[in-house]
Design a protein around this nucleic acid. Structure first.
Lengths: 156, 156
DNA sequence: CTACATGCAAATCCTTTGCATCCAC
DNA sequence: GTGGATGCAAAGGATTTGCATGTAG
């Protein structure tokens, strides 16, 4: 696996940039890379705890802000409890969130390329769509809604 | 103007559906329709106050939840202080939010039609993109960033 | 009349901040 | 050694909830 490589390369690159590599920073980054998934501050804290690491919430927030600033992670509001963070990797993807059942599925990034081009060309806007959440009805709930007319449209 | 008509038609339709039309519900809906803009809970409360109406925050939240449930308004997180609400009208539009200066410009809804079709066809997902916020760099900040290398990438 | 909405206050929960201490460089 | 990061505690701000009361249907 190249996971470890990615991690160390990243650390080296950051050091080169003159960034301070503290213990919390390395740990949080490691958690995010290993998971590869979108995590809330709480998730990160829980994972660390399970590994025997106790880390203050405020520290995690600050580390995440830093990671975002140096461009390693993206921040998104999936409409859930809290904001989620995830590493910006090559396999960039987005999410389809079902308004009815809450299920979340992945959306390939390339689907957005058309939109990006339009925004650049027609709006003079340089989009940074690192992590998008699109709400709607998933296949199953879509089927249900045909019969049940209108059901739980509550969520988000 | 058909504003008033829209308002009364809506009330009639809701009554027909068996929804309870209380004073707060009518007032909040009126504010949103008259504004036509995206408002936070605080905005709604302020507008009401300026009209001499005192309304509890909790009530406004509950009314907004209800309005969302009956499909009259949409809810979006523009990355600001709080969530914004707005009536779902025919002139549906979205927002381009600049990560650097925070400026917000409009995006015509039709730009998203291609994406909608793709989602329906390839993902079996029925999107409800009522109000989308896309982050990135506006024309001006885009120009600046060419010279200044990297500036305030902080926001959201 | 009765179910449901409102008002009030208190609670929750996510996120930020002040400040003394600590540590990476 | 020193500026910046951390830990702790406390504040801040948006949103929710419990409960008694009011009111639309």
């Amino acid at each position: 696996m190249q996971e470890a490589d990615t991690f160390h390369e990243t650390l080296t690159r950051l050091r080169g940039k003159g960034e301070r590599l503290t213990y919390p920073r390395r740990k949080v980054l490691e958690v995010l890379i290993r998971s590869g998934d979108h995590l809330t501050v709480n998730d990160v804290q829980r994972v660390l705890q399970q590994a025997g690491e106790v880390m203050d919430t405020a520290t995690i927030y600050r580390v995440l802000q830093w990671l975002k600033q140096v461009g390693l992670i993206s921040q998104t509001d999936l409409g859930g409890e809290a904001i989620v963070y995830q590493v910006i990797d090559d396999h960039r993807h987005h999410h389809l969130v079902c308004l009815s059942c809450g299920s979340i599925s992945e959306l390939d990034d390339r689907v957005l390329d058309v939109l990006r081009r339009t925004l650049r060309r027609n709006y003079d806007f340089e989009p940074r769509i690192d992590h998008l959440a699109i709400f709607g009805l998933c296949r199953e709930c879509r089927a249900k809604s045909h019969t049940t007319a209108r059901a739980g449209m509550t969520h988000e």
